[in-house]
Design a protein around this nucleic acid. Sequence first.
DNA 1: CGGACGGTTGACTGAACTCAAATGGCGTGG
DNA 2: CCACGCCATTTGAGTTCAGTCAACCGTCCG
Lengths: 231, 231
Amino acid sequence: MAKARLCEDFNEECRDIVEQLFVNFISYSKKQTFFHEGDDIGIMFLVCSGWAARAIHLADGRRQITEIFLPGDLFPVHASISQGVIEDEIVALGECRVTTCSPGALNEASRQTNALTRTLWWLSQRDAAILRMWIAMNGQYRVYERVAHLVCEVLERLKHVGLGEGNRFDFPLTQQEIGDIIGATPVHVSRSLKQIRDAGLLDIQGGVLQVHDLERLQKAAHFNPGYLNPR
Amino acid sequence: MAKARLCEDFNEECRDIVEQLFVNFISYSKKQTFFHEGDDIGIMFLVCSGWAARAIHLADGRRQITEIFLPGDLFPVHASISQGVIEDEIVALGECRVTTCSPGALNEASRQTNALTRTLWWLSQRDAAILRMWIAMNGQYRVYERVAHLVCEVLERLKHVGLGEGNRFDFPLTQQEIGDIIGATPVHVSRSLKQIRDAGLLDIQGGVLQVHDLERLQKAAHFNPGYLNPR
DNA sequence: CGGACGGTTGACTGAACTCAAATGGCGTGG
DNA sequence: CCACGCCATTTGAGTTCAGTCAACCGTCCG
C-alpha cells in the first residue's frame, strides 16, 4: 500500500485519513479463512500485502472464486451463512496482511471528505466491473484466454498501487486456485499455462510471475483495461 | 411494482418516497438501448414492467449479458464508453417501462429515511451476490444446469415483487439472449431447453414460461435461493 | 407472397474433462 | 543428513460436452 494511487480522487488527504482509520493489523496465513463473528454490519478490510479471495461453495462441493483482493483493495467482510452452511467465504491466498476499520467510521469520514467519497465510489464501481468481466470471461473465453486475461488484469491492478514493476510480481496462486477462478480443471490450467509459456509470453518461477511480452499477452487475452478505470 | 416487498426494510414509507421520487416514465421497445447523454453522475432507473439487460461487447464481437433487470429492480445508467467504443450498454429485452430519478435526490431521501438506506444497501448487496453467482454458473455448471438455474433465479426474484404466481411468468428472452447470459450457443440452448421440457420441468409458450415441477427444477439447477436474500 | 427471424434437428468437430500415472519440490521426522 | 510422504505439477489416453455448419420449419410482418 506504500504508494497507492488508485484513482484520480485518491489524494494525500485521503491517504492520511485511511492511515488514521485503519489501525488494527492482522495477518492471515495460507488458506486461513477471514472470520469476524456474527456481526450484521460487517467490517472493512484493507489489504496491505498478499492476496485474498472470496469463494462460493456450491452444492456439489465445487468451489468458485468470485473475487480476488490484492494490495490496496478494500472490502467488507460479513458472515454469509444460510441455514448454517457457509456459502460465501473469504480466504487468504498465501500470507496476507490486512488492516481493519468499522464501516461506520469509514462512512463518517467519507461524509466529511469528498475525495474519499469519490474514491470509495470508484472502488465499488471498479469491483462491479471486474465481476461483470469475470462473468464474460467464464462465459465466452477459451481457458487459455481466461488464464491470460487473469494475468493481465492482476498486473494492471497491481500497477495501480505501484507494484508489478518490470511486468513482474508475486503470484501466490496454485493451478487449482487458478482453475477455481476461471472455471477450469487444474489439469487444463496446466496445459494452458504450458501453451502460454511455450509462446514466450510469461514465466512463473518460485511464486514470481514474469511477463515477457505484455503486448502479445494482452492480445491473446483480448484484454482491454478500460473496465478497470470507471469514471 | 404494484406490491413490491423486496426486503424486510422496504415498508410503506419507503414505497411512498420512491413513488414521489420516480416520476418520469419512459418506455423502451425491444432491443432499444437505454441512453442518457454524457452525464458523469448517471441516472437511476426503476423498472416498472418488462425486462432490461446490461451487456458487455467483447473485442471479437461476442456479447455477454452480465445483469438482467426485472420489475422492481433499481440500477444506475451512465455512459460507459472507452476510446469511443461502447463497452457496456443497457438494452430493453422486449417492451420495458421504467421511471427515473437523479442519484442525488435518492441519496438525499436515503439520508432522511433509514429504511430506505437499508433497502438500497440490500439491493446493492443482492445485485453483487447475483453477479458472483453468475460467475459460478458460467464457470462451474453444465449448460442445461445454467438454463435451469437462470429460470429458478428469475422466478425467485419475481416472487419478491409479487409476480410469478402459479410459477408462471412472462418470459421475453430469445434463445440467443439466454445464450448471451449463460455463455452458450443458441443451438445448445435449444437442446438444453428441450431436455428440460422433455423432463416435464417447464414449458415456454407465447412468451410465457410455466414451471411444472419447481422442486425438481431447483434440484436440477443446484439452486439455493440464499444468495438472493442478503442480511 | 416473400423474407427475416427464432427455433429445431442432424452430423461432425473440437475443446475441455476424467482417469491415471509419473515427476519433482518441500517440509517433517527419524 | 536422509527418507518419507504430501502436494503441486506435468503428461498421456480416452470420453464427454458443447460448438460449428447446415438444413429445415413455422410464424410474423412488410
